[in-house]
Amino acid sequence: MAVFMNEQIRASEVVLTGLRGEKLGIVSREEALGMARTQGADLVCTSLMSSPPPCSLMAKGKAKAAAQKEAASARKAAPGQAAGKSGGKEKVKELRFTAHIEEHDYETKLRQADKHLRSGKPVQLVVQASGAKEAAAAKTVLERLVADLKEAGVKETGLQTGGKGSKVKLNPR
């Protein structure tokens, strides 16, 4: 839910509620903003579904803190809800590579991918390329990774190649 405060409110008139919940009726936006300033408060609108929108005066900072808290709890609840609906779908570990990766870096990332796959977790392998010349190198690195990980994982998607690089998702065997 979006919270609009002070100058973000664009309606010419608002239905205003005071600091202690008293109904102040329909007032102009400028008058409501003036009242908020004189009382050291914020003018807060949580719904734009009606005309004029309902707004209330709130202690300075309370509305923003409440909105942040609500957004945080929504983010926290979202992964759990999604997992419940889709049958426990887990997060995919993404490992990023560059098209011209050093051998020891390649080996390190390969071990990480192997470890995740063997523990039963899917892996998304992304090879970044900065241009058309590197795109072929990116695809080569990705094909090598898939070949090296064939005992631990199986491709869910084919090699996906785009302007910024290539990617593939591997599921555990």
Results as ranks from 00 to 15, higher is better:
V3M: 08
V3I: 08
Q8A: 05
I9C: 02
I9W: 01
V15T: 07
L16G: 08
T17E: 03
T17F: 09
T17M: 10
G18H: 05
L19H: 13
G21E: 01
G21C: 00
E22P: 14
K23L: 05
L24H: 15
G25W: 06
G25D: 10
G25A: 09
G25E: 05
G25H: 13
I26R: 12
R29M: 01
R29I: 01
E31K: 08
G34N: 12
G34D: 12
M35P: 09
M35N: 04
M35Q: 15
T38L: 04
Q39K: 13
D42A: 02
L43W: 12
C45R: 05
T46W: 00
T46F: 00
T46Y: 00
S47F: 11
L48E: 02
M49D: 02
M49P: 03
M49G: 06
S50L: 07
P52E: 04
P52Y: 08
P52S: 07
P53A: 00
P53K: 03
P54L: 01
P54C: 10
P54S: 06
C55D: 00
M58T: 10
M58D: 13
A59C: 08
K62V: 09
K62T: 12
A63L: 01
A63C: 09
A65N: 14
A66V: 14
A66S: 15
A71E: 15
A72L: 07
A72V: 08
A74I: 06
K76Y: 11
A77T: 14
A78M: 02
G80V: 09
A83L: 10
A83Q: 03
G84Q: 04
K85M: 03
K89Q: 04
E90G: 11
E90F: 08
E94S: 11
E94Y: 00
L95K: 01
T98Y: 12
T98I: 09
E102S: 13
E103N: 11
E107A: 06
T108R: 09
K109Y: 11
L110K: 02
Q112T: 15
H116Y: 14
R118H: 09
R118G: 14
G120F: 03
P122N: 03
V123W: 00
V123D: 00
L125Q: 07
L125V: 08
V127H: 14
S130H: 09
E134V: 14
E134W: 14
A135W: 08
A138S: 05
A138N: 01
A138F: 10
K139E: 12
V141D: 10
L142Q: 04
A147L: 14
A152D: 03
G153H: 12
V154E: 13
V154S: 15
K155T: 15
E156G: 10
E156T: 05
L159V: 06
L159R: 01
S166I: 04
K167D: 14
V168M: 09
L170G: 12
P172N: 08
